[in-house]
Design a protein around this nucleic acid. Sequence first.
DNA 1: TATGAATGAGCATTCATTCAT
DNA 2: AATGAATGAATGCTCATTCAT
Lengths: 204, 204, 204, 204
Amino acid sequence: MSIFAPNEYSVGVTKREQILNKSLHLFAERGIQATPMSLIVAESGVATGTIYHHFKSKQEIIEALYLEFKKELGKAFHHSFKQDQSFYQQFESIWRGVFEFYLREPLKFRFSQQVTHSHYIDEELKQEGLSHYQVFFDFFEAGMKKGEFVQIDLHLALELVHGGVVSLANLHLKEKINNLELNIKEAMQFAWRGITKTKSDQHE
Amino acid sequence: MSIFAPNEYSVGVTKREQILNKSLHLFAERGIQATPMSLIVAESGVATGTIYHHFKSKQEIIEALYLEFKKELGKAFHHSFKQDQSFYQQFESIWRGVFEFYLREPLKFRFSQQVTHSHYIDEELKQEGLSHYQVFFDFFEAGMKKGEFVQIDLHLALELVHGGVVSLANLHLKEKINNLELNIKEAMQFAWRGITKTKSDQHE
Amino acid sequence: MSIFAPNEYSVGVTKREQILNKSLHLFAERGIQATPMSLIVAESGVATGTIYHHFKSKQEIIEALYLEFKKELGKAFHHSFKQDQSFYQQFESIWRGVFEFYLREPLKFRFSQQVTHSHYIDEELKQEGLSHYQVFFDFFEAGMKKGEFVQIDLHLALELVHGGVVSLANLHLKEKINNLELNIKEAMQFAWRGITKTKSDQHE
Amino acid sequence: MSIFAPNEYSVGVTKREQILNKSLHLFAERGIQATPMSLIVAESGVATGTIYHHFKSKQEIIEALYLEFKKELGKAFHHSFKQDQSFYQQFESIWRGVFEFYLREPLKFRFSQQVTHSHYIDEELKQEGLSHYQVFFDFFEAGMKKGEFVQIDLHLALELVHGGVVSLANLHLKEKINNLELNIKEAMQFAWRGITKTKSDQHE
DNA sequence: TATGAATGAGCATTCATTCAT
DNA sequence: AATGAATGAATGCTCATTCAT
């Protein structure tokens, strides 16, 4: 590839990035196991050896993508969080920040869903990712201390709230949602009601 | 196989069932793609040809297990539902019924988690499974009509409520939950608050 | 299969014949190697075991069909041969007899073509079939003795004459021949000129 | 592979050629269906993957060999043809050219016989090969126009003449022919008499 | 850094055949 | 005679990875 005749990939995109981009695409659309290295080679326009120059193995590509995803998800949590707001406003910021990240990066979202529920990433690596959620943990603990939120296991709370974001993103990306804005509000308030204390409708 | 010399598998278990049982085990514990047919052969104590006598392909085993799971999950919804009870009691029955099914059948639960987020089952087959949730849809619609539940897309409601059950089952099976009974109550009430109307803490 | 409810195969056709008929069909149309026993089972409406009750192996079915073919071809030679006719009339009878047999039984013809040029039938069995051509050998030898036919190796003569019949049958069955009657005459006279002595156009 | 340590195959023979050579050998001697890829691997001294690096499938090896054969047969037709000779001399050149090609390349000849009468090559690919025979078609048409040859379908003429070459080559390679030179002359003149017009011995 | 031919263990599947009923 | 579940060696092929250039 001459520098005088840059091809379609050469404009500021390194081979490493080409490989990651195409891998993400293929993993998300076809599934990880249905994406052989040879296909990544063919699609990303590099040679077999070049992939193995940048990544030790297929597993390492998966892990690189996973870590990148977790980092960006962490950012989505972090950036959308605004101090000096009401708990509700903070909650909404986080919820929307993550949801919008998923809609903005549907490939990364789908890839993460696959990886989370498969055996591609070992528990250890999954644990590492937890640090990105610190913002949520801090937010939720503060709410609990103030008596605004129910007393609940932090991890469980994260899963319950995050699960709702994922569910709506999933349904929306599958085009099963008609009125998106309305359902965003519903899903969000579902979680908000879930975590906040109410006096009346407690049972037992 | 004579009735006088039954082998270790012969007590009322057909070869077909042996194959399905062992496949479920291996899929759940090692992952589907990490389970070659040769391993199923070795573990289930049948010959290669016997597997292909009963199932057209590995894919067909996966689909058979998926359909079986969906059917049983449908039963878990159905059997735990008791008419002539308060909405809350009905809700709790369903929630607990499904949750208990997951704890009773952790292999099926794990297998379903894998399959749901992979490309092994096509959309069409996934749609078929929806019929099993009719009990929930009926229940939720009744609650909406009576003004007890929030107005929300039925599928979204199912996902939001079911997502909580899955989250807790997941954390529990990974031994991340200390006080199970307490967290069951919390997760359940998270969902109950989520779906029920409250007067005070609505935002906007 | 009850005697009160004979199925479509039972009218005077034994299972053995069903198997042979369907095998011939499948071998001719798909090729021998592309016809697994399981397909013969499915198409002939018998059980696997039944085939192996009547035939020791797939090879034995092929050989049974081959021998049947050779016998019928022998008959085609024999029956079409009429003594007390001119050499040309005898030649024409044989040529046409064989050609008509091929058109009457295209499946047997195609099967024989496959088998002749493959390794399914060993040389020994092929030799056995030669006895059926005795009629031709006798006819040709008589013609040579009378000085009507050229002095030529008998086997070669058979191949040369028979080859023309096969060529035309092949082209006709592939629908490459427009005017069949004309081309029959041409192909036949090609062979007749070939085997008969002429004074003029010998070279050297 | 260093030039200082060439292995036993490296003298100007690419892996691709090794594979084709050995495949031809095995196909011709054992039959195509009796030649598993594993045997080609073992005999050609390459790895399984290497075969599939050069050929998409076993079918593609067969097709490559078939096309190579057809091309060389075309050359045999073409090169042996000499303009400015009598029709008989042209005929003899072609006949002998093809016959000698078959004797020179018995493996290719046997392979072609197998393939021609099996289902390995589809009609379309067989049609493509016809272009190689143009020399014969031109020669024969010229002879017809000059009134030297009988009026006969070109394809049929090709088959009738070529069939004789094949018959003799076959018998010779099976060592059924004693005096080869004599029988070459006989078979050739059989065809020559067949295609040339004679005044006397026409019937009807 | 980059290339792509070469590798070979491993995979899903086929298929002729056996055998208990 | 007939059945069809069961067998397992063998097949064509895949695919992550290595290595010489």
